[in-house]
C-alpha cells in the first residue's frame, strides 16, 4: 500500500480549498461550508488521535471491569453495568475514568469546547 499522500493530507487539502472559496458563497452556503471544513478537521484529528485514545480507554477500563479485552466489548459491558446500577457515581475511580475517556473523545470532536471543568 502507498504511504503518501496520507489521509490527513487529503482532508487538509480539501479543508483549505473550502476556506478559499468560502468568501464567495451566499450566507447559508458559507455557513454549511464552515460545517464541512469542521467535519474534515474532525476526521483529521480522528486519524491522528483515535488509536492512542482507544488504547488508553482500554487501560482505564480494565481495573473498573476487572478484565481486559477489545474496546467495543469493554464499552458495551460498561454501558450494561451503568444501566443496571452495578456501577454509578459512588463507584471508586469511575468518574475519573469516564472523564478521561470523554476528554479524549472531545479532543477529537471539539477541542475548543469550553466547559465548567476546563
Amino acid at each position: 500500500m502507498i504511504t503518501h499522500p496520507k489521509p490527513q493530507e487529503l482532508t487538509e487539502a480539501v479543508a483549505r480549498w473550502i476556506e478559499q472559496i468560502r468568501p464567495q458563497l451566499d450566507p447559508r452556503n458559507a455557513f454549511l461550508a464552515r460545517v464541512a471544513a469542521n467535519a474534515l478537521a474532525a476526521v483529521t484529528r480522528e486519524l491522528e488521535l483515535s488509536e492512542a485514545a482507544k488504547a488508553r480507554a482500554i487501560e482505564r477500563l480494565e481495573p473498573i471491569l476487572g478484565h481486559g479485552g477489545a474496546y467495543e466489548g469493554l464499552n458495551w459491558e460498561l454501558c450494561e453495568k451503568l444501566r443496571a446500577g452495578d456501577l454509578g457515581v459512588e463507584t471508586p475511580r469511575l468518574m475519573a475514568v469516564l472523564r478521561a475517556n470523554v476528554l479524549d473523545q472531545l479532543a477529537i470532536d471539539q477541542p475548543g469546547y469550553k466547559h465548567e471543568g476546563a
Partner: peptide, 15 residues
C-alpha cells in the same frame, strides 16, 4: 459529534 460536549457537561454536573 456534539454528543461528547454533553457528556463532559453531564460529568461536571454529576460530580
Amino acid at each position: 459529534r456534539r454528543v461528547s460536549e454533553t457528556e463532559i457537561d453531564l460529568l461536571n454536573i454529576l460530580e
